[in-house]
Amino acid sequence: MGACLSPADDSDVSGRRTSAPLFFHPYVKGSQIVMDESHSIASRVATFCNGLVFSNRPVEPYEKVTLKISKEDGKWHGGLRVGFTWEDPSLWEPRELPPFACPNLVNQGKTRACVLPDEYCEEGTIVSYWVDNQGCVFCSINGEPEDILLLDGVLVTSPLWAVMDIYGRTKEVQLLDPSNLPTNNNVHSPLLLAHDDQIESNRHDSHSLLEGPTGDECAVCFGHKANTMMLPCSHANFCACCSLKILKTSGCCPLCRTKVKKILHVSGSAEREGMEDQSDNAKDIQPLR
Protein backbone atom coordinates (compact mmCIF):
# COMPACT_ATOMS: atom_id res chain seq x y z
CA MET A 1 0.00 0.00 0.00
CA GLY A 2 1.47 3.33 -1.01
CA ALA A 3 2.06 6.15 1.41
CA CYS A 4 -0.68 8.69 1.94
CA LEU A 5 0.20 11.97 0.27
CA SER A 6 -0.58 15.12 2.23
CA PRO A 7 0.51 18.76 2.08
CA ALA A 8 4.12 19.16 3.16
CA ASP A 9 4.91 20.69 6.52
CA ASP A 10 5.42 24.44 6.34
CA SER A 11 6.97 27.00 8.62
CA ASP A 12 5.50 30.13 10.13
CA VAL A 13 7.17 33.54 10.10
CA SER A 14 9.20 32.69 13.19
CA GLY A 15 10.76 29.68 11.45
CA ARG A 16 8.90 27.24 13.69
CA ARG A 17 7.60 24.17 11.85
CA THR A 18 3.84 23.89 11.59
CA SER A 19 2.00 20.68 10.73
CA ALA A 20 -0.11 20.06 7.68
CA PRO A 21 -3.87 19.71 8.22
CA LEU A 22 -4.97 16.48 9.85
CA PHE A 23 -7.51 14.28 8.08
CA PHE A 24 -8.37 10.60 7.90
CA HIS A 25 -6.10 8.28 5.94
CA PRO A 26 -8.01 7.91 2.66
CA TYR A 27 -6.87 4.38 1.75
CA VAL A 28 -6.36 2.40 4.96
CA LYS A 29 -9.68 2.02 6.76
CA GLY A 30 -12.09 -0.61 8.02
CA SER A 31 -14.27 -2.45 5.53
CA GLN A 32 -17.44 -0.71 6.79
CA ILE A 33 -16.04 2.84 6.59
CA VAL A 34 -17.03 5.44 4.02
CA MET A 35 -15.64 9.00 3.93
CA ASP A 36 -16.59 12.32 2.43
CA GLU A 37 -14.44 13.92 -0.27
CA SER A 38 -12.45 15.95 2.26
CA HIS A 39 -11.62 12.81 4.30
CA SER A 40 -12.66 14.66 7.44
CA ILE A 41 -15.94 12.76 8.01
CA ALA A 42 -15.93 8.99 8.47
CA SER A 43 -19.08 6.85 8.81
CA ARG A 44 -19.66 3.17 9.52
CA VAL A 45 -22.30 1.87 7.11
CA ALA A 46 -23.31 -1.42 8.78
CA THR A 47 -22.73 -3.80 11.72
CA PHE A 48 -21.02 -2.55 14.89
CA CYS A 49 -17.36 -3.17 13.98
CA ASN A 50 -14.81 -2.95 11.15
CA GLY A 51 -14.73 0.79 11.70
CA LEU A 52 -11.01 1.50 12.08
CA VAL A 53 -9.66 4.81 10.76
CA PHE A 54 -6.25 6.47 11.08
CA SER A 55 -4.71 9.90 10.71
CA ASN A 56 -3.16 10.72 7.35
CA ARG A 57 0.15 11.75 8.94
CA PRO A 58 2.03 11.32 12.22
CA VAL A 59 0.94 13.53 15.11
CA GLU A 60 3.28 15.28 17.53
CA PRO A 61 3.28 15.01 21.33
CA TYR A 62 0.61 17.35 22.74
CA GLU A 63 -0.95 17.83 19.31
CA LYS A 64 -4.69 17.45 19.82
CA VAL A 65 -6.77 15.10 17.69
CA THR A 66 -10.25 16.61 17.89
CA LEU A 67 -13.38 14.71 16.87
CA LYS A 68 -17.08 15.45 16.90
CA ILE A 69 -19.39 12.47 17.31
CA SER A 70 -21.85 13.50 14.62
CA LYS A 71 -24.11 10.42 14.49
CA GLU A 72 -24.90 7.49 16.75
CA ASP A 73 -26.82 4.25 16.39
CA GLY A 74 -28.76 3.37 19.51
CA LYS A 75 -29.21 -0.32 18.67
CA TRP A 76 -25.59 -1.10 19.60
CA HIS A 77 -23.67 -0.90 22.87
CA GLY A 78 -20.22 0.54 23.46
CA GLY A 79 -18.75 3.45 21.56
CA LEU A 80 -15.75 5.25 20.14
CA ARG A 81 -12.25 3.90 20.89
CA VAL A 82 -9.19 6.13 20.51
CA GLY A 83 -5.44 5.75 20.73
CA PHE A 84 -2.14 5.84 18.85
CA THR A 85 -0.06 3.44 16.78
CA TRP A 86 3.68 3.53 16.07
CA GLU A 87 3.34 1.48 12.89
CA ASP A 88 2.71 3.46 9.68
CA PRO A 89 -0.85 2.58 8.55
CA SER A 90 0.22 3.15 4.93
CA LEU A 91 2.16 -0.12 5.16
CA TRP A 92 -0.99 -2.14 5.96
CA GLU A 93 -3.37 -3.79 3.55
CA PRO A 94 -6.91 -2.59 4.33
CA ARG A 95 -8.37 -6.08 3.93
CA GLU A 96 -6.02 -7.32 6.66
CA LEU A 97 -7.19 -4.83 9.28
CA PRO A 98 -8.75 -6.48 12.35
CA PRO A 99 -12.40 -5.73 13.20
CA PHE A 100 -11.59 -4.02 16.52
CA ALA A 101 -8.98 -1.66 17.90
CA CYS A 102 -9.43 -3.28 21.33
CA PRO A 103 -8.26 -5.93 21.76
CA ASN A 104 -7.23 -7.01 18.22
CA LEU A 105 -5.08 -4.10 17.06
CA VAL A 106 -3.67 -3.53 20.55
CA ASN A 107 -2.66 -7.19 20.82
CA GLN A 108 -0.49 -6.85 17.71
CA GLY A 109 1.93 -4.94 19.94
CA LYS A 110 2.36 -1.55 18.24
CA THR A 111 -0.85 0.21 19.24
CA ARG A 112 -2.33 1.54 22.46
CA ALA A 113 -6.04 2.34 22.55
CA CYS A 114 -8.99 2.34 24.90
CA VAL A 115 -12.77 2.66 24.97
CA LEU A 116 -14.11 6.08 25.85
CA PRO A 117 -16.55 6.05 28.79
CA ASP A 118 -20.19 5.93 27.72
CA GLU A 119 -20.87 9.46 29.00
CA TYR A 120 -18.31 10.78 26.47
CA CYS A 121 -19.94 9.09 23.47
CA GLU A 122 -23.17 11.07 23.14
CA GLU A 123 -24.05 12.47 19.72
CA GLY A 124 -22.73 16.03 19.42
CA THR A 125 -19.87 15.49 21.89
CA ILE A 126 -16.50 16.96 20.93
CA VAL A 127 -13.55 14.84 22.08
CA SER A 128 -9.93 16.02 21.97
CA TYR A 129 -7.14 13.59 22.81
CA TRP A 130 -3.36 13.74 22.75
CA VAL A 131 -0.22 12.02 24.02
CA ASP A 132 2.42 13.59 26.25
CA ASN A 133 6.18 13.05 26.21
CA GLN A 134 5.91 10.17 28.66
CA GLY A 135 3.46 8.17 26.55
CA CYS A 136 0.33 9.00 28.56
CA VAL A 137 -2.86 9.77 26.64
CA PHE A 138 -5.27 12.40 27.90
CA CYS A 139 -8.56 13.74 26.63
CA SER A 140 -10.87 16.68 27.18
CA ILE A 141 -14.58 16.81 26.45
CA ASN A 142 -16.45 19.74 24.86
CA GLY A 143 -13.59 22.14 25.47
CA GLU A 144 -13.64 21.70 29.26
CA PRO A 145 -10.32 22.53 30.96
CA GLU A 146 -10.14 19.17 32.75
CA ASP A 147 -7.54 16.80 31.23
CA ILE A 148 -8.73 13.22 31.79
CA LEU A 149 -6.17 10.41 31.85
CA LEU A 150 -7.13 7.58 29.46
CA LEU A 151 -4.13 5.25 29.15
CA ASP A 152 -0.35 5.03 29.06
CA GLY A 153 2.35 2.93 27.38
CA VAL A 154 2.51 4.76 24.03
CA LEU A 155 5.98 4.48 22.46
CA VAL A 156 6.83 8.16 21.96
CA THR A 157 10.32 7.48 20.56
CA SER A 158 8.71 6.57 17.20
CA PRO A 159 6.38 8.53 14.89
CA LEU A 160 2.77 8.16 16.01
CA TRP A 161 -0.47 8.02 14.03
CA ALA A 162 -3.86 8.59 15.59
CA VAL A 163 -6.17 5.56 15.73
CA MET A 164 -9.95 5.79 15.97
CA ASP A 165 -12.41 2.90 16.03
CA ILE A 166 -15.94 3.97 15.06
CA TYR A 167 -17.51 1.21 17.08
CA GLY A 168 -20.91 0.29 18.49
CA ARG A 169 -23.27 3.19 19.09
CA THR A 170 -20.80 5.64 17.48
CA LYS A 171 -21.89 5.82 13.83
CA GLU A 172 -20.01 8.80 12.42
CA VAL A 173 -17.21 11.14 13.50
CA GLN A 174 -15.86 14.36 12.06
CA LEU A 175 -12.29 15.61 12.43
CA LEU A 176 -12.19 19.23 13.57
CA ASP A 177 -9.45 21.83 13.60
CA PRO A 178 -8.77 22.45 17.31
CA SER A 179 -7.50 25.96 16.54
CA ASN A 180 -11.01 26.95 15.44
CA LEU A 181 -12.66 25.82 18.66
CA PRO A 182 -13.26 28.01 21.73
CA THR A 183 -10.36 27.57 24.10
CA ASN A 184 -10.07 27.73 27.86
CA ASN A 185 -6.27 27.86 27.98
CA ASN A 186 -6.31 30.66 30.55
CA VAL A 187 -9.18 29.27 32.59
CA HIS A 188 -8.57 26.75 35.34
CA SER A 189 -11.13 24.13 36.15
CA PRO A 190 -13.51 25.29 38.93
CA LEU A 191 -13.13 21.81 40.35
CA LEU A 192 -9.36 22.17 40.58
CA LEU A 193 -9.64 25.67 42.05
CA ALA A 194 -12.11 24.46 44.63
CA HIS A 195 -9.69 21.74 45.74
CA ASP A 196 -6.43 23.74 45.82
CA ASP A 197 -6.31 23.92 49.61
CA GLN A 198 -7.31 20.28 49.96
CA ILE A 199 -4.62 19.19 47.52
CA GLU A 200 -1.91 20.94 49.52
CA SER A 201 -3.23 19.33 52.69
CA ASN A 202 -3.34 15.92 51.00
CA ARG A 203 0.26 16.28 49.85
CA HIS A 204 1.35 17.08 53.37
CA ASP A 205 -0.61 14.13 54.73
CA SER A 206 0.82 11.77 52.12
CA HIS A 207 4.39 12.63 53.11
CA SER A 208 3.66 11.57 56.67
CA LEU A 209 1.77 8.45 55.56
CA LEU A 210 4.28 7.38 52.93
CA GLU A 211 7.77 8.24 54.09
CA GLY A 212 10.17 8.94 51.30
CA PRO A 213 8.70 11.16 48.56
CA THR A 214 9.52 14.85 48.61
CA GLY A 215 8.39 17.77 46.48
CA ASP A 216 6.46 16.57 43.45
CA GLU A 217 7.62 12.94 43.39
CA CYS A 218 5.06 10.20 42.94
CA ALA A 219 4.26 8.68 46.32
CA VAL A 220 4.29 5.16 44.85
CA CYS A 221 7.27 4.86 42.51
CA PHE A 222 9.32 7.90 43.68
CA GLY A 223 10.66 8.05 40.13
CA HIS A 224 8.21 10.24 38.21
CA LYS A 225 6.53 13.56 38.77
CA ALA A 226 3.18 13.53 40.58
CA ASN A 227 0.93 14.96 37.88
CA THR A 228 -2.54 13.48 38.38
CA MET A 229 -5.45 13.94 40.76
CA MET A 230 -7.80 11.18 41.87
CA LEU A 231 -11.46 12.05 42.14
CA PRO A 232 -13.52 12.37 44.22
CA CYS A 233 -10.92 12.37 47.03
CA SER A 234 -8.62 14.91 45.26
CA HIS A 235 -5.35 13.26 46.31
CA ALA A 236 -2.69 14.40 43.83
CA ASN A 237 0.37 12.42 44.88
CA PHE A 238 0.78 10.01 41.97
CA CYS A 239 2.21 9.92 38.45
CA ALA A 240 0.04 8.94 35.51
CA CYS A 241 1.47 5.42 35.27
CA CYS A 242 0.89 4.61 38.94
CA SER A 243 -2.58 6.20 38.89
CA LEU A 244 -3.65 3.90 36.07
CA LYS A 245 -2.21 0.85 37.83
CA ILE A 246 -4.12 1.79 40.98
CA LEU A 247 -7.35 2.31 39.02
CA LYS A 248 -7.03 -1.07 37.30
CA THR A 249 -6.05 -3.06 40.40
CA SER A 250 -7.52 -2.00 43.75
CA GLY A 251 -9.49 0.91 42.29
CA CYS A 252 -9.03 2.80 45.55
CA CYS A 253 -6.83 5.73 46.53
CA PRO A 254 -3.86 4.36 48.56
CA LEU A 255 -4.03 7.31 50.97
CA CYS A 256 -7.70 7.33 51.96
CA ARG A 257 -9.15 4.16 50.34
CA THR A 258 -11.86 6.16 48.55
CA LYS A 259 -13.14 4.52 45.37
CA VAL A 260 -11.56 6.27 42.37
CA LYS A 261 -14.03 7.41 39.72
CA LYS A 262 -11.81 9.57 37.50
CA ILE A 263 -8.17 10.60 37.09
CA LEU A 264 -7.33 14.15 36.05
CA HIS A 265 -4.12 15.68 34.76
CA VAL A 266 -3.25 18.59 37.06
CA SER A 267 -0.02 20.07 35.69
CA GLY A 268 -0.57 20.15 31.94
CA SER A 269 0.41 23.70 30.97
CA ALA A 270 3.51 23.92 33.15
CA GLU A 271 4.67 20.48 32.09
CA ARG A 272 4.26 21.29 28.40
CA GLU A 273 6.35 24.44 28.73
CA GLY A 274 9.15 22.96 30.77
CA MET A 275 9.44 19.38 29.61
CA GLU A 276 12.08 18.27 27.14
CA ASP A 277 11.68 15.17 25.01
CA GLN A 278 11.99 11.99 27.07
CA SER A 279 12.05 8.34 26.10
CA ASP A 280 10.31 6.15 28.67
CA ASN A 281 9.88 2.54 27.61
CA ALA A 282 6.31 1.57 26.80
CA LYS A 283 4.71 -0.49 29.59
CA ASP A 284 2.53 -3.50 28.92
CA ILE A 285 -0.68 -2.31 30.59
CA GLN A 286 -4.04 -3.31 29.13
CA PRO A 287 -6.37 -0.48 28.02
CA LEU A 288 -9.26 0.66 30.19
CA ARG A 289 -12.52 -1.10 29.40
Rank of each mutant, 00 (worst) to 15 (best):
S6L: 03
A8G: 11
A20V: 01
P21T: 04
P21I: 10
F24Q: 04
F24T: 09
S40Y: 15
A42G: 01
S43M: 14
S43G: 01
V45Y: 09
F48S: 09
C49W: 02
N50F: 10
F54V: 02
F54H: 03
E60Y: 10
P61E: 05
K64Y: 07
T66I: 02
S70Q: 05
K75W: 01
K75P: 05
H77R: 13
H77C: 11
F84C: 11
T85W: 00
T85Q: 02
D88K: 08
P89W: 01
L105T: 06
V106T: 14
N107W: 08
Q108H: 11
L116H: 05
C121Q: 15
E122H: 13
G124D: 07
C136Q: 05
C139S: 11
G143H: 05
G143K: 08
E144V: 02
L155Q: 12
S158F: 05
Y167F: 12
L181R: 10
L181A: 02
L181E: 14
V187D: 02
H188K: 11
L191F: 05
L192W: 15
L192T: 12
D196G: 03
N202S: 11
S206W: 11
S208I: 15
G212K: 14
P213T: 10
G215A: 06
G215K: 04
F222L: 15
K225T: 14
N227V: 09
M230F: 13
L231V: 07
P232G: 09
L244C: 04
K245M: 07
K248G: 00
S250D: 08
S250Y: 07
P254W: 03
L255K: 07
T258H: 15
K261I: 00
G268C: 04
R272K: 15
E273H: 08
G274V: 01
M275T: 12
M275Y: 06
D277C: 10
Q286K: 15
L288N: 12
L288Y: 08
